[in-house]
């Protein structure tokens, strides 16, 4: 389980480098990089922080991952979470941070 950084989308703002609780992301030539993806906890702090949705979370193959990618678009209090499956199909769930969990 780890993150993938889409280098073509990255704008080099460095927010992900700052927020990572494991200090695992750095800028290399102005582009974010995670040199050791196996050290990632998958807390998705960077996924939420990225202003251009260049960071996607995935489940490692060793834990049964199927190649899907998860990213999130923040819009005010709304978080639009999107899962893209390897076949290209997409599912989006929207959570309002003003709403409590029902469970």
């Amino acid at each position: 389980m780890s993150i993938e950084i889409k280098t073509k989308q990255c704008i080099g703002c460095g927010r992900c480098c700052k927020v990572c609780p494991g200090s695992l992301i750095c800028l290399n030539g102005g582009i974010a990089e995670i040199p050791h993806p196996e050290r990632c906890w998958a807390c998705v702090s960077c996924v939420k922080e990225c202003p251009v949705q260049a960071i996607h979370m995935y489940l490692g193959e060793d834990m049964g991952g199927l190649g899907g990618r998860l990213h999130v678009l923040r819009e005010g209090t709304l978080l639009h979470w999107t899962v893209r499956k390897p076949d290209g199909s997409i599912r989006t769930l929207t959570v309002d941070s003003r709403d409590s969990n029902k469970y």
Partner: peptide, 21 residues
């Protein structure tokens, strides 16, 4: 669906697992 959303607020990997499978 409420469970899928609840997990996004604390452990999004589980929601990814449910949705990708």
């Amino acid at each position: 669906e409420d469970l899928q959303k609840a997990y996004l607020n604390m452990a999004p990997s589980q929601t990814l697992r449910w949705l990708e499978s």
